[in-house]
Amino acid sequence: MKTIRAAFAASLLLANLAHAVPQSVGNGFLGAVGIPFEKFAAAAGPWAQGAELKGPWKARAEKKGDVENFDLAVDAIVFGIPAAQVSAERVSGAVRRFTVRFDEAKMKNIKSSAGGLYAQVVANITALAGEPKASSPGGEKSFRYESSLITARKSGAKEVIVDFTPAK
């Protein structure tokens, strides 16, 4: 029995070693635009009047006055986490907000975020941007990163919303 157990354990080790991860050269938003979404949204470029909204975006049908809304038409990994939806709000030809929605229910790698999607999103933003500049009693946290203000908040039991707005 011991021999069988040892052989089984050895086969598991070999299987583990063989299960390698490739190095991707990028797809989704990264493949289309060439930089990760959080880098794109944190830079000064997208906020300029008349700036091109890089990447494949789809305009929503409704338009209220000067306000236009767009949805990203490809998948995006934002802060290392697959986003359920990425949208942009443009007012009078200038982007005013990017909104990223993370949905725990739609994440394939759900077990890696078992500690709570919100905690993971905040930890990853902190790793990039440093400690939050402000925290609200409701748990909303705001970070300053490059040319953007990044705000993360819970939305319901399984969703997290992250807004990028231009830093003042």
């Binding site: 991860v21 990994i77 802060f79 290392g80 986490i81 790698n109 890696s112 975020s113 993971q120 930890a123 990853n124 790793a127 990039l128 941007a129 440093g130």
Partner: peptide, 15 residues
């Protein structure tokens, strides 16, 4: 290895 955790380490190295 997870993509989510890897982001944290890559971002931290940059910071």
């Amino acid at each position: 290895w997870s993509q989510e955790r890897d982001f944290l380490h890559g971002a931290f190295a940059e910071r």
